[in-house]
Amino acid sequence: MDARLRRVNKEIADCKNDKSSNIKIELVDASPFHLKGSFPGPQDTPYEGGHFEVDIVIPDSYPFQPVKMKFITKVYHPNISSASGAICLDILKDAWSPVLTLKSTLISLQSLLCSPEPNDPQDAEVAKHYTTSKRSFDETARYWTQIYAGGPAVKKMEVKEPQKDEIAIAGLEKAHVDQFEGLGFERSKVIDVLRRLNYRGANVANIAEDRIVEELLK
């Protein structure tokens, strides 16, 4: 049995035995080198109550090269790509050390949810939202937690819409979307443009309506 397999088996067993950390690692298929990790969203954050799953691929030269991790659950966070789940975290790149384990890395991801680093973004749009209006960002992140990570319902949006609210997913105001939809543009296109231009919070005042129409006509 090679050293990598021995270590991974040990790590999986260690995680199983540790009930206190709330970190779970499970097999995806027959290979011990493709795993799925999961942990609860940290308390007092918009991710609270959610259950976050992470895809783990263990490279051949593990533990000398970093483990490859990305979020399976969609997360609204400046350091996590909202599209692909890719993660921007130093220990997954040049600050990796063979002393780090799957568990300690997953714990680092959990604490990344507690302390976003918008100056080192993986998702520039989300980072912009975060820096423009923290409150609006939190609302969107909470909504994503609810619909993608099984988090508790967000009070403001209630459950009156059983299907997912595209506007809330994009972190936009319904009134703004309605305004441009009223001009005859397709709803999904309006959402897309407003999202890209970061038409949120105080930033709304900085973006001329002409500019939006221009983008919509492209």
Binding site: A3, R6, R7, K10, E11, D14, P63, P98, V99, T101
Partner: peptide, 14 residues
């Protein structure tokens, strides 16, 4: 003394 003491290796976890 060093040779006889047991150390947990943080890489292979043994």
């Amino acid at each position: 003394t060093f040779a006889e003491t047991s150390y947990p290796c943080a890489i292979c976890l043994s």
